[in-house]
């Protein structure tokens, strides 16, 4: 083994000598300089990374300080000693008008919204996309357009009438009323349609010859093949659901149904009142709690996430 390595080194040296000779023989050859261009590239990227990082870092640092300090000096650059207290208050202290909500309740509600939205959207979307791509339907084009018209009309546009409809259906202050209207757009359907279309035709043909009907093909072939796509969609949809703000604000007036992001609004209202010193530390802690789950998911599953995001463009 050692011999081999040594021979390797020798060969390498020999090559080097050869290169050196070649260099000497060549009439002019610019000296190797520090690549200022590369340094510049890194500088720009570091500046960009700091731009993204610093504001969040300051919130994080401030979430470990007393309210009065932040009230006097603004957000902090260094960590303090009151972190435990602030996070304890943010998570376990009951607040709101009815004293029926604390951080943990909101966290659970956010989870329900994130999971419910992501799973609902994926299940409904995959089924519809399967029907559109793999079946000969007379009204397929009509169904397609009916579904895809919803693509770019976000809930915010039809917010008031949606609210009225939910009221009429007695779904206000329910998880159903919270989640279903958000599912009413075709992003996942469109995404899976694009993906199914990219799967080779021959696969369904081979499966048909192998005796697989539509249900078997879906369960045995299509779903396992879509695993990565499902994971990618799940991450995007989970983050999207978790981060919903306007709709939960309108549809949940019952504080026990508040999500973390919805809870931010309560903080802002306390802020606006200005009657007492706002609980800055607790607010910062709540903001950190509200962003941690989606941020971690995006960072840990970033390959899937990036794939899912950019595939939908095709």
């Amino acid at each position: 083994m050692a011999d081999i390595t040594e021979t390797g080194v020798q060969t390498a040296t020999a090559t080097n000598t050869a290169t050196n000779t070649a260099t000497a023989a060549a009439p002019t050859r610019p000296k190797k300089r520090i690549k200022w261009e590369t340094v510049g590239d890194h500088a720009v990227l570091i500046a960009g990374a700091l731009l993204m990082l610093v504001p969040v870092y300051m919130i994080l640092a401030s979430s470990t300080h007393e309210d009065i300090l932040i009230h006097r000096e603004g957000l902090q650059f260094f960590f303090g000693d009151d972190g435990l207290e602030n996070y304890n208050a943010a998570l376990f202290e009951y607040g709101g008008f009815t004293n029926s909500v604390n951080g943990v309740t909101m966290l659970v509600n956010s989870m329900i919204l994130g999971f419910g939205f992501a799973i609902g959207k994926i299940v409904v979307g995959m089924m519809a996309a399967y029907a559109i791509v793999y079946f000969r339907l007379r009204f397929a084009t009509f169904a397609f357009w009916m579904i895809f018209t919803t693509l770019l009309l976000p809930l915010e546009v039809r917010i008031l009438p949606s609210y009225e409809v939910i009221q009429q259906m007695n779904l206000a202050n329910t998880y159903t009323g919270l989640i279903l209207p958000l599912i009413a757009s075709a992003t996942a359907t469109f995404f899976f349609r694009q993906f199914f279309r990219s799967i080779p035709e021959e696969l369904v043909e081979a499966a048909r010859i192998d005796g697989a009907g539509p249900v078997k093909f879906f369960i045995d072939i299509l779903v396992p093949l879509s695993r990565t796509m499902i994971a990618a969609m799940f991450i995007i949809m989970f983050v999207f659901g978790w981060n919903q703000y306007l709709w939960p604000t309108l549809i949940t007036t019952d504080e026990s149904l508040f999500t973390l992001v919805r809870g931010i609004r309560q903080i802002m209202q306390a802020y606006a009142d200005g009657s007492s010193t706002p609980e800055y530390g607790e607010a910062a802690a709540l903001a950190i709690i509200a962003m941690t789950p989606p941020v971690l998911i995006v960072i840990f599953f970033q390959n899937w996430f990036v794939k899912g995001l950019t595939e939908s463009d095709k």
Binding site: W242, N243, A287, V298
Partner: peptide, 9 residues
């Protein structure tokens, strides 16, 4: 990663 932060946050 900032993608994951909710607009109101």
């Amino acid at each position: 990663w900032v993608y994951a932060i909710a607009p109101p946050v």
